[in-house]
Design a protein around this nucleic acid. Sequence first.
RNA 1: GCGCCUGUAGCUCAAUGGAUAGAGCGUUGGCCUCCGGAGCCAAAGGCUAUGGGUUCGAAUCCCGUCAGGCGCGCCA
Length: 640
Amino acid sequence: MKSLQDKLKKEIAALLQDSHDLSGVDISFSLPAERKFGDLSTTLAFTLAKKTGSKPFVLAGDIAARLQGKLAAVAEVRVAGGGFLNFFLHRDDFFLAQRRSLAEAWTAPARREKVIVEHTSINPNKSAHIGHLRNSCLGDTLARCCRFLGYEVEVQNYIDDTGIQVADVVWGLLHYRRMDLEAIRRIPDLAAYLWELYAEVNRLFADDEALAAQRREVHKKIEEKTEPEYGTCRHVAEQVLLDHVRTMERLGIHYDLLARESDVIALDFFKAAAAELAGRGVMVPSSDPEKQGCLVIHYDREKIEKIIVRSNGTITYVGKDIAYNLWKFDLLGRDFHYRPFHIYPDGRPIVMTSSAPFGAPPARSFGKGQRIYNVIDVRQSYLQNLIAQVLVQLGHPEAGANFVHFSYEMVALTPACVREMGLTLEPGEESKPYIEVSGRKGRAVKADDLIAMLEKKSLREVGARNPELPEADARKLSRVIAVAALRYFMVKFNLNTVIAFDFKEALNFEGDSGPYLQYAVVRLNSILKKAAAADMDAAAGAAGLAPLPEGERELYWELVLHLSLLEVQVEFALQNHELSSLATYAYGLCQKFNHYYHLFPVLAEPDPILRSLRLGLVLLFKHKIEAILSLLGIEVPERM
RNA sequence: GCGCCUGUAGCUCAAUGGAUAGAGCGUUGGCCUCCGGAGCCAAAGGCUAUGGGUUCGAAUCCCGUCAGGCGCGCCA
């Protein structure tokens, strides 16, 4: 459908260029609301009417007359509803083209552009929680969509291994729990241990100003590389990072590069950025007496000045982030060193930045992106917008335009959910619609815990349906189902919808859920397998839709049309930053498939022509749904 | 105070400015001698918070009101 729409646009533009002014008009198509309105619809006449001040219906009639019989793929053009232009396709041609396309693998148009997707970027001081899961699931799906559309994609995960958050737990380990590095190394599940410790020390800091001062002291020692604080910090950051990488790996989420803040600092990235910032007058000494000695950037949009270099000479988070993002666009004139970090089971490596050369340089180059997606929640819009502004001010308008804050709303907990977890509500919170997730307050659902709950429930469901399945197979299967449930749940909401987390909904395997999609494909595959075993041929005999009984033909055709939209849907999702539309599309296709095969039996159909047409449709469903599911990171099991 | 976002069925959410606002959950009632019931079919449920405006056309855009959320730090 994608190629057909592109072709139609060109044909229509050519046919109308002498009679109508199409400049600045983007011809767009949609599937009409009802089948009786045809197969493809455009509101072109309305758009042109607005431009010229003429009547849409009259204009549509004129356009229809000019297009009638001139478009190769179109049997008829009709006007309806006051000015809609509705196209009726040559159905057999379109259908057969769709069938043929199954034989060839979908090849995305070649694009030279390199896309960098930064996602996850969790502070390495405790286990990941459900808020982080939304980030990673969105980021990974985004990366998969970009790859599908032919972009070269590099996935980066930014590690703030120098911040005060890590210092908090380092203080907790060394000075509160009074452990030495050896004892710390022996902690079995460090990330989970720190989950508790982080919440505990933050309760202490809140009540005791002296302790809070100690924490800042530890932070300073880490920056000055004083032992044992520095070594402990390195150990903690690396171990917890590994824990995050493993958690995400369970969900099929992979990274190419782990970029560490400590390396941004060690390699003086900010110095290079600062020279530019100061040289162009973007970063200036503050005129505010309260910010004496600070270097600031004036943020136009908010009409405030943001501190970049503190009066003590240290660099703020934004400053480091500006340098890092300049590097992503290859606008810094510097590069990291690199070292191997981890190898995924499929053999792909994760590389980590390094402040010093480490063995042979990596085979591939990092950074140098033409387009940057930063998957970061909406609460950082302010800073992300500032970075975009700075890119433009430094004379890189194209980078500014290709810098995308892929912003999404947070995951929160319902008050009921907080109570369910055995945590207490503060006064007034009971009446709130939702409560912010907070690692600091220990108020969050741990990612690993949620995955474990999903696997447990999944195992129970699998066991009930497949009592003869060996334990190992059942466990493997339940993992695949758990991942589907989680990943689908995390992308099915619009980006600016706050997910008020609820166990019942997240653990739902019915209806609008990942397992429902898997189940549909498992059923569909089962039909195809049985057909193959019985030597039934999906491609036999059918030269068109004519053999289908009238009642079935309309439905069949509608399904072919919807199935043809895959590429259109992925492009739409990417352009509109709405990955949820993909989830909705996938769900809709599965519903349509379930509906169809309940109405029209495939294997039991005695007429071989009819049967092979139905099998052909099942095959189309298989290819399209499996393609979207792979974009969503959902595997299709053999059985379930 | 300033900025951004949200308000749609009992609940959770969909819906390129387009044709009769759709799903899931929940409720009620059907469907397994039938390709696997994590399924299918049907019913009930809506003044799209509210008042104006723009438009051939508004849940969607603009202005106001009400209600809620999030930002605005020499934290990251």
